[in-house]
Amino acid sequence: MKYMLIMRSTDETFEASVDVDFSEIIDAMGRFNDEMVTAGVLVAAEGLEDASLGVVVDYSSQPPVVTDGPYGETKELFGGFWILDVASQEEAVEWAKRAPLSGPGMKAEIRRVPSIDEFPQDNEWVKKERAWRESTGQL
């Protein structure tokens, strides 16, 4: 089963990490990622650029409204993710507990990624996606 570990943080998290050497963060993440690669559970991992450089597309009106960052007061930000292929949610939790994430407001959310096999196989769009995944070696 695949699980996504989503790194979440707050403005308070960023304030607390201002004085931390970025190379220390990269080294800690690199060691953690290497552990998961060695264990054979890491499928994908990415960090995200600073939220102030992103945009938000709000669909509550037509046409959708696009707003540039920064966002003013931030409750939580999605900062990056790992996708793991593990046997259970409990195993995903154990990996998340080992992640080099610390500080006020820092959290990891864990969500299962459903397999394409869990969707109606007679659906036209599921068939097209399955064909695409097969053609790109994902299945």
Rank of each mutant, 00 (worst) to 15 (best):
K2L: 13
M4V: 14
I6A: 15
M7C: 11
R8L: 13
R8V: 07
S9D: 07
S9P: 00
F14S: 04
S17C: 01
S17D: 02
V18M: 06
V18T: 06
D19M: 13
D19L: 12
E24Y: 04
I25A: 12
M29T: 03
R31H: 10
R31I: 12
F32V: 04
F32E: 06
D34H: 11
M36W: 00
V37A: 06
V37D: 05
T38N: 11
A39G: 08
G40L: 09
G40F: 05
A45L: 02
A45Y: 01
E49T: 11
E49N: 14
D50A: 15
L53G: 14
L53D: 09
G54V: 03
V56S: 06
V56W: 00
V57M: 15
D58S: 15
D58A: 13
D58M: 09
S60R: 15
S61K: 11
P63R: 12
P63E: 09
P64F: 04
V65I: 13
V66W: 01
V66A: 13
T67H: 14
G69T: 06
P70H: 06
T74M: 14
K75I: 12
K75C: 09
E76H: 07
L77M: 14
G80L: 08
F81L: 14
W82E: 02
I83H: 05
L84A: 07
D85R: 12
V86N: 03
A87I: 04
S88G: 06
E90S: 15
E90N: 13
E91A: 14
V93P: 00
E94T: 09
E94V: 03
W95S: 08
K97C: 07
R98M: 09
A99P: 00
P100N: 05
P100K: 07
L101Q: 03
G103A: 07
G105W: 00
M106Q: 10
A108R: 02
E109S: 12
I110R: 07
R111T: 03
R111L: 11
R112C: 04
V113N: 03
I116N: 03
D117K: 12
D122T: 14
W125R: 13
W125K: 10
W125T: 10
V126A: 08
K128D: 12
R130D: 03
R133Y: 03
R133E: 06
E134W: 00
E134T: 10
S135K: 12
S135L: 06
S135M: 13
S135N: 12
T136F: 07
